[in-house]
Each structure stands twice: as C-alpha cells, then as structure tokens.
C-alpha cells in the first residue's frame, strides 16, 4: 500500500522548509516524486507568457495519443469551444 499527497504551497520559504524536512524521511519510505512551480496561479499575460511559455508547455502530461476515443473527445471540445467564442 502506498499513499500520495499533492499540495499547493503559496510560500516559497515554506516549500523549501517542507522539502528539507521531507528529505529526512527518504530512508523511511518517503519518495519525493515531483515538486514544481505552480504555473497555474499566475495570470498568463503577455509578459508572463513571454518568460514562462516553454516551462508551461513542457509541464503538460499528454495522454497516449493512440487512444482515438480520447483524441476525438479532445478534438470536439477544442472546436466546440472555438466556434462558441
């Protein structure tokens, strides 16, 4: 059995401290999988996009593209949204 916690931390200092503490438990069975900037928080205005677009782009987790069913759903969603703008 294993457990997973996903946190949103709004303070960089606290995140650093938490990470520091958690690292002490790495031998007891805690595995730090990932921690990253929450890019969703900020407003994606021109300036922010200019600076962070690559980081944002790289951070997606694409589903298996061979799954046609999901692909068509996404396709429908995209064009539905486009034409209802």
């Amino acid at each position: 059995m294993s457990y997973k916690i996903v946190l949103n931390i709004h303070n960089k200092d606290i995140m650093d401290k938490l990470l520091w503490i958690l690292r002490h438990f790495e031998n007891e069975g805690i595995e730090i999988i990932d921690y990253k900037k929450n890019l969703e928080q900020a407003k994606w205005d021109e300036e922010y996009v200019e600076k962070h677009w690559r980081e944002i782009a790289l951070s997606t987790d694409s589903a298996d593209l061979d799954d046609d069913e999901r692909l068509y759903e996404a396709y429908e969603e995209f064009y539905h949204e486009k034409h209802s703008d």
């Binding site: 890019l39 969703e40 407003k43 996009v49 997606t60 996404a74 064009y79 486009k82």
Partner: peptide, 23 residues
C-alpha cells in the same frame, strides 16, 4: 494546435482558452 491545447487544458483546467492558445 489542438493536441497541445488539449494537453494544456488537462494540466491547467482553470486557464482560459485565450491564455492556453498563447502558449
């Protein structure tokens, strides 16, 4: 355009269409 847009939609569900398209 649409595939990357879909990926962004999944990763950033609160973002507007305009914001995602910028990326």
């Amino acid at each position: 355009e649409f595939l990357k847009y879909s990926d962004l939609s999944r990763a950033y569900p609160t973002k507007t269409r305009k914001e995602k398209l910028k990326i």
